[in-house]
Write a protein that binds this DNA or RNA. Sequence first.
DNA 1: CGCGCCGTTGATATTATTCAAGACCAGTGG
DNA 2: CCACTGGTCTTGAATAATATCAACGGCGCG
Lengths: 223, 223
Amino acid sequence: MRELCLPFSLEPHDIRQLDELVATRQRLKKGDILYRAGDSFASLHAVRQGSTMTTVLAEDGREQVCGYHLPGDLFGLDGIDNGRHKGQSIALEDSEICAVPLERLEELARHVPALQRNLHRFLSREIDRDHNIMLLLGSMRAEERLAAFLLNLANRYRQRGYSSTEFVLRMTREEIGSFLGLKLETVSRLFSRFQQEGLIQAQGRAVKLLDVTALKQLAGHRC
Amino acid sequence: MRELCLPFSLEPHDIRQLDELVATRQRLKKGDILYRAGDSFASLHAVRQGSTMTTVLAEDGREQVCGYHLPGDLFGLDGIDNGRHKGQSIALEDSEICAVPLERLEELARHVPALQRNLHRFLSREIDRDHNIMLLLGSMRAEERLAAFLLNLANRYRQRGYSSTEFVLRMTREEIGSFLGLKLETVSRLFSRFQQEGLIQAQGRAVKLLDVTALKQLAGHRC
DNA sequence: CGCGCCGTTGATATTATTCAAGACCAGTGG
DNA sequence: CCACTGGTCTTGAATAATATCAACGGCGCG
């Protein structure tokens, strides 16, 4: 959990207590579902290894990808409200996920103000993140969305000490499309076009960013 | 504050303490800005009378409406993260807004588990709400979005004891368009079409829902 | 009373989707 | 080892949805 936001600036003693909370450490295979809509909610989840994707489903079956989570990310907060998950979470590759029981986390937060604050910070960041995605979905064109998506990934890989210009996507074109509010063919065409224009080099899911400046310009400096 | 979610199931004594927190009660005129992006953040806000709209801005000036807040709604949680608001909030009509200092709310939440839980519930609901908007923006067509928007308002007016079928919008066509990821002309055309088809009756911002069933069908039962 | 914002509507342009065909690729079983 | 298969990805052509540009009417506010 050290890499997560929750322990930030906590006393060593409190960090130890927080570590003890992390009850289960679950291994998932690619495609495994961690929870479904309607499942009872009890814990936040943290990616330790691998990656996951969270989605919401409409009644008519349409699906919207809401999040793409890399190691160190915390997710699965929908459901605090009524104790039932609203969306679902699926492993994009073989992954290891930690569960943090909310009730015990709240208990600890009551005694450790810094932890309480970090938890709120985290929830607030999640809301900010969603607002940015709403901006993306509501007012950006297809090419701008993909550019923003790639730059967002670049930043997150950099933060984690990986190459920010060369990485392997774990989502299919269709999943990326769902995340960005586009159809898979549109995503595929954009990858081809970006490549033609020398912005990226891509073969399948392996991507290399060649012209980050141009991508930033496309994305409106939003990343 | 009684109508808000925070006091739900709290002891009278704790509710009194919560009431005392509500420090300022601010009057805003139509168009007044409550806070701007970058302003320092210290309080959550609650609508007591009137209505407000929260937006996020892109560097290039594009604006996305993220929320439309009616009396009883709590908003303005962006900014817990780093103490600065990420978006801005503007009054859509003459309004009265309460401020709830976060620090004191957190202090109280540490001693009142039910309040702590309600606060988390609220943050979680906000995230769910955003995910639903992402679903709307990412996978629904223009007419479906407007139908969902109108039904969402209908529900919220019903909850507040007002007519759920007849209300006055406080947003311009352009603001509705920004909220729904559409251009103002598209919104205007949809209002006209819905009227022609007998789904609604509208003149300007005064709206009457005539065929809620059909609207629900359009929105994919999402409301 | 007039000015400016707001809303409507039409014609046209642009963007993204849909439908369709085929290539590629990894994993499986013969 | 190879052929097969299902899922994924790419690409083209046609189509549909929405945006853009433009003009005008109306209402409300000063």
